[in-house]
Each structure stands twice: as C-alpha cells, then as structure tokens.
Design a protein around this nucleic acid. Sequence first.
DNA 1: TGAAAATGTAACACGGGTGTTTCGAAATAG
DNA 2: CTATTTCGAAACACCCGTGTTACATTTTCA
Lengths: 187, 187
Amino acid sequence: MSTSETGVRARTRQAIVAAAIDVLAADGGASLADVASAAGVSRTTVHRYFPERSDLLAAVVEEAMARVETATERARLAEGPAPAALERACREYFELGSALTLLFGGSIEIADADWERCATSPEDDIGAVVARGHADGTIDPELTGAWVENLVWALLYSAWSHQREHDVPRQTSLDLCLRSLRKAIAA
Amino acid sequence: MSTSETGVRARTRQAIVAAAIDVLAADGGASLADVASAAGVSRTTVHRYFPERSDLLAAVVEEAMARVETATERARLAEGPAPAALERACREYFELGSALTLLFGGSIEIADADWERCATSPEDDIGAVVARGHADGTIDPELTGAWVENLVWALLYSAWSHQREHDVPRQTSLDLCLRSLRKAIAA
DNA sequence: TGAAAATGTAACACGGGTGTTTCGAAATAG
DNA sequence: CTATTTCGAAACACCCGTGTTACATTTTCA
C-alpha cells in the first residue's frame, strides 16, 4: 500500500506540527521558515503538507486541543474530592507546556468555531468539578465555574513565567501554583 | 519660542503613544497604519514623531511603565497591613487596562535594559510589602515575593479575560480577583 | 536494482508593512 | 494679515514573508 507503510508522511507531519506548537507559542507571528528550521525540514516541505499558513494553524490548534483533552482525561476529574481533582488537572496541564501557552497565551487567534468543535472541552469538565465542589461544600461558593477555570489557566501561566524568569526548579514553581490554587478555591 | 508654546506637539505625541498602547496591547504585531488611524492621525505624522518603529515601541514602553509607577505610588504600599496594601495595588493596576496588558501580556518584546531603567520597579515595591507581611505574619511564609508579584499579574490578566469573554460587569471580575488574591496570600 | 515517493534547492511573482520624500492644505502664532 | 508650524495625501523604493513552480537529490520499498 502506498499510504503510510512506515508512516513517513505521518511522522514528518507530526514533526512539523510539534515544532510549530513550540515556535508559535513563543512568538505567534513567527515565519514559516522558523517553523521549518525548528522541525528540521525545508520550507517547501511545510508548504507541501500545509498549502497555506491557515492550514498549519488549524492543524496546530487541533493538536494542542487534543493534548489538552488527553491531559483532562488523565486527570480523572470525576473521581475524588473536587479540590484534589482540580489539583490533578493542574499537574497534568502543567506538563503540556507550550501547547497551553499557544491556546491560552493569546499570541495566536483561535476561531470560535474551533472552540465549539472541542466536544468535551475542559471548560465543561472543570465546570462540572466546581459544581460538585459547590454541592459538597469543598469549594468557595462565591467562585463561579468560569472564574475557577480562568484562575487555573492564569496560575499555570504564572508558574511558567516564574520558572522562566527566575531560575527555580519546575517543581518549586508547580508547588507554589498548586498551593495558591488550593487556598484560593477553598470554601 | 518655537517648541511647544501651546504644546501642540506634545499633545499629538501623547495621542499617538496612547493609541499605540491600546492597539499594540490587542495585537503586538499591529501595523503603524493601524496605530495612526486609531490616533486619528496620518501615518506620515507617526513617522514624523517616531522615525522608526522601534522608537515608537520605546516610547510606548516608557509611557506604560510610567503609568504603572504612578499606580504603584497611589497604592501607598508602605501604609497599613500588607494584604490590604496588595489589594489596593491590585485595584490601581486593574484600572490601567491595556498598559498592563502590553507590558505583561507577552505580545510585545521588552528589552531587559528597559526593565532595569525602571528605577522603582513594582517588583521591588511588592517585594517589600511581602517582606513586611512575612515579618508580621499576615502573608503566607511559603510564598516568595517574586511569586506573589507574578500572582498579582496573573490574577489581573485573568480578571480582564473573564470580563472580556463572559460579559460580566467589571466590578464582579475585580471582586473575584481580589477575593482570590486575599485567600491565596493569607497566612 | 529500479521505480516511486519524499525531500531539498533555487528562483520567481505577489502582497503588505516600512521608511522616505515632495507638495499642498490647514492651523497657529506674532 | 502674514509667516511659521503642523499635518495630510500621494508616490516611491525597499525588505520580508508568502505561495508557487521546476528540477535535482535522496530515501523508501517492491
């Protein structure tokens, strides 16, 4: 068969998308040449897989959302106390790195249609956890689900900034992030 | 005298810088034509006041830093309990809007030299407040000054996002922000 | 080994942002 | 009112990123 016997095409495509996530997370206006060199690939090859820039952007957003979704599933938000579930989610999201920076860093424009396509968006999942926490009194009733969600992204972004600017071990940054989240959402 | 009898030049210059702060905060890669139209000025005039793009950028960063510094002074961080002082700072910074988005939103590159030029940077001021809070036991000793500073920026960014995405009154967003900060830093 | 697929190199046109200049109109100061 | 200053409109060359094409090279697989 001609398609993906060894998966050459799929592998280079993934390499391009992965490199694009890193590069575009650092600079949303990065050129395709930057993405190409980061992927160890010629600029022509990038155009072969993604005819227009918007095509690459779409693939990048899709991949980033897929990573977020995977992380959300591994957090098993439905299990255990709500605060602990949110903490697990934070740990998982923290590992995503540039994927989350790309989605929530604002450096790239995400079409509303893309957000809606994300079937089981973390928005709904986190909202459900917060609702559970409200019901059993483990989460501050004054904080809405939407705010807690924003808070999670903000704290993660803060943790990455803190790790990058001051040269502290990532574990220290993550601990500060989790501690702050735990105290902020406590009932 | 020829220079700034009525302050015409100073006023148009300020208009350009102010417009640039708003436009560049929304999109760091915005064109000078966008800035010009936002300022109600011709693109030629922009080049008259700022020969190169980098010149405008420098002026914009300087203005934004000046606004932050003014807000910091008005917060009177040296007075009263440390948590209340940080809350006052948060209220002042919240009013800055796009100026802070520009400096801490990451959409524009800030040279390290610019940060150092900021003599009484909020970094030092907030650090002092946190130190005071550590001394009198009103701030969580586990949280370093640098982290609290990052936390403030992150919470403010979160408040703006929350206000923009969900259409809630700004007072509600600010209340959630302050509540989260108060609980997070409490000893 | 030989054909097909995948990639690289080079060159090109196109568009858009930048920086510059010139000239004329409008506002301002004296 | 007159001269100076300030500003806008237009045109221009320049650079950079984009998208396309053609051709050579390498890799992969039968």
